[in-house]
């Protein structure tokens, strides 16, 4: 061994330079300093996010201020696309559809999911199997379940119509996807079916963190089953409900696959969501600028949903422990 520290050991190198009265070199600082090291470890993830999330988002917003078409670079047109959309009844119909779709589906997903979670939290025979069954809609690829619903809603071969006819309850087939309101309720139903497992399983996980002794204490305190749910289970579950429902709302609001397979936004735009309309205008119609404007218009809604749940979570002082009285 020579007296000169080997250059492969940065710590020793820095120490050696410091011992010799020299400050560490720039390169050594960058590879050895804790803060810089943290930065280097973060770089790959940050690069990934910037490239695949921030850049497309920024590009989308930029495109919405241009009149770009597919195959032709656009010029900056300011708010023209938005002004145009403000006068477009189809756009406003899609906003209405999206809000209806999101609200109704989320409310039902929450109610059914919570009910299932409470049910699965009890001692049932074949509990493990039932839990697995509940997860099925979630693990089937959306496109496949959408195709299954497409058959269920088929004007000629629908199993629902067939069953009701066989039972003598109905004379003619139900026009599930041909009538505007039927189509809306049909896609909402399919979305609920697909979304319930996520809510149910997550809330079930939340329920299982509630200590059983709290229920015993409540029993002795004289709480009925409903009061136990109202005053113990529900408040303890609210943080998880907030997170689950935020995700659920975001996923529902931006839904695309289900609609596209079932109706493509029809009949007469009755089931067009903002996401499907944006796709239709931008990719199929070629008006990238206008499509981007529709997509960008979703951002305020999504931000509002996130903010509501953020402030909902913020208020719960009891979770945060000491030093905030």
């Amino acid at each position: 061994m020579s007296a000169v520290p080997s250059s492969t050991d940065p710590a020793a190198a820095v120490a050696a330079r410091a011992g010799a009265g020299l400050s560490p070199s720039r390169w050594q600082r960058l590879t050895w300093n804790r803060n810089w090291l943290g930065f280097w470890f973060m770089v790959p993830a940050a690069a990934f996010l910037l490239l695949f999330l921030a850049y497309p988002l920024g590009l989308g917003v930029w495109l919405s201020f241009t009149e770009t078409r597919i195959g032709r670079a656009g010029v900056f047109v300011g708010l023209e696309n938005y002004v145009w959309l403000a006068d477009d009844p189809v756009f406003w119909l899609s906003v209405f559809n999206t809000l209806l779709y999101t609200t109704v589906a989320s409310v039902f997903k929450f109610a059914i999911g919570l009910y299932l979670a409470l049910l699965l939290n009890r001692h049932l025979p074949f509990k493990a199997m039932i839990r697995a069954v509940v997860l099925i809609p979630f693990i089937v690829p959306t496109v496949l379940s959408a195709i299954a619903f497409w058959w269920i809603y088929d004007p000629q071969f629908s199993i629902v119509s067939w069953s009701l006819r066989e039972l003598g309850l109905l004379e003619t087939n139900i026009d599930f996807l041909g009538d505007p309101w039927n189509a809306r309720w049909s896609v909402i139903f399919a979305n609920i079916w697909r979304g319930v497992p996520f809510v149910a399983i997550t809330l079930l996980a939340g329920l299982q963190t509630v200590s059983p002794s709290l229920y015993e204490a409540a029993t002795i305190d004289g709480a009925s089953r409903w009061q136990m749910f109202r005053f113990v289970t529900y408040p303890l579950l609210t943080p998880i409900i907030a997170v689950v429902m935020t995700f659920s709302v975001l996923f529902t609001f931006t839904d695309f696959q289900l609609i596209w397979v079932l109706t493509r936004g029809g009949p007469v735009n009755a089931t067009h969501l903002m996401a499907t309309l944006s796709y239709q205008r931008a990719i199929l119609g070629g008006y990238l600028g206008e499509g981007s404007a529709i997509a960008t218009a979703m951002i305020p809604f999504l931000l509002a949903a996130i903010l509501i749940s953020w402030f909902g979570l913020q208020r719960r002082k009891w979770q945060q422990g000491e030093a905030n009285d």
Partner: peptide, 28 residues
């Protein structure tokens, strides 16, 4: 249990975490 008029102190206290001390005590 609620008709028996007994009160119980649990090993892990079983306090309701989302209620203040006053609310915990006054719950019943």
């Amino acid at each position: 249990p609620k008709e028996r008029d007994v009160a119980m102190v649990f090993q892990n206290y079983a306090l309701y975490p989302h209620m203040t001390v006053a609310a915990n005590m006054g719950f019943s």
